[in-house]
Design a protein around this nucleic acid. Sequence first.
DNA 1: CGCAAGCAAGAGCAGCGCTCTCGATTGTGT
DNA 2: ACACAATCGAGAGCGCTGCTCTTGCTTGCG
Lengths: 230, 230
Amino acid sequence: MSTAKGVRARARIEVTAAIKDEARRQLAADGASKLSLRAVARELGMVSSALYRYFPSRDDLLTALIIDAYDSLGEAAEAAHAEAGDVAPARRWVAVCEAVRGWALAHPHEYALIYGSPVPGYTAPETTIPPAARVGVLFIGIVRDAYQRRGVARTPVPAELEPEARRMAADLAPDLPPEAVVALVAAWSQLYGLVGFELFGQFNRVVEDRAAFFRHAAARLADGVGLVFP
Amino acid sequence: MSTAKGVRARARIEVTAAIKDEARRQLAADGASKLSLRAVARELGMVSSALYRYFPSRDDLLTALIIDAYDSLGEAAEAAHAEAGDVAPARRWVAVCEAVRGWALAHPHEYALIYGSPVPGYTAPETTIPPAARVGVLFIGIVRDAYQRRGVARTPVPAELEPEARRMAADLAPDLPPEAVVALVAAWSQLYGLVGFELFGQFNRVVEDRAAFFRHAAARLADGVGLVFP
DNA sequence: CGCAAGCAAGAGCAGCGCTCTCGATTGTGT
DNA sequence: ACACAATCGAGAGCGCTGCTCTTGCTTGCG
């Protein structure tokens, strides 16, 4: 039935979505810390206290937006990966990196929400973990594919890191060599250094042609992971 | 004279410092967005309006804290560099990276203030540029030193990036090869990806032995810049 | 059909950044 | 040396925030 579960449940879903939409609008306009429950309620023509029936606190609304942001980013990355098709893993790696950058530039405040400083006094709940992992999983898949095709160039890790490297590989990708997993995780985090610096103005007066700079840096990141360009 | 400029000017300096100290305390305790002018004033035994004689707005207080944070980080990095002495540039590079990480772990909220998402609606004034550049300048010096001693390993940049690479080199370090400057800037930003991910919890359930992981990643960063370990 | 659950509305509390006014104190030019 | 100007702390107040509690109306299940 289209009205299964009754009018009330349907209304709840719609109102919840409307709240998130309006909140996302304000987030994109003014940033996370200016997001106001009262303003959202006002814009929706309801009184502020009514909003607490849907989100028990401002932080809960933010959490919902965070999950959506992770999913939106993950979707963009996966779409770019799919669109790249069956090209060499190194090229797919760069395509995903550029998708991450593109999404960040298009949604700066949402990017700041998930990869900038966590909202003070706020710790993300478990629910955010799976969507947050999507881009990482994608990278693992690319490296795995490269490894299965013709192997990856390996850079040995120092002795002090060997146990940790084995533990990481066991947790994240048991079929990949530990050195590759270490390189992968490092490159993964470094990607967000590149994106964050561009987004938060650290490249002002330093890098001008940021698209070209990023493309090159992403390719070198791929290189560092052991992917080769044909 | 020790009382030159009169009692009033002296008092102003002391009160300004007291305000910044208390603000820094609250920043370290609860983060930037919970920093409240009223709470600072309360703690200092003054009324909130009196505080506006010293900082015209909350953002101005934050700006003062940002500059101090950049200087504190720069100082820590420079101290680590000096302490490393005359070892190989690659080792000094890693020492500075570890100093940045150490400072960030010791001052998480101040790190978030300067390298996390910028406080929404707030754009840093020109005054913050020189202190913000200190760590970068340090890295340039290290690479320059390596270059003058025995050269650096160069990775060519693609044709599309060549003009920008030349421009960056002319701006930042005219005596260094453009490829090295590009690699340097990339590594510089990537360092903050590593640090930020550890600090903001992105490494939870991914990397456990973070010190060893970081040391290795920093060494590989140095490698990417063309520095060689003896 | 009746009763419990779900819901919007309104009032209210404590906190915030910021402004303005009012005396008191301090520094300076004549 | 004295008067005038600049500086400062205190207090009241404005409009905003997140959040709570109570009051009725609406919906849906037994």
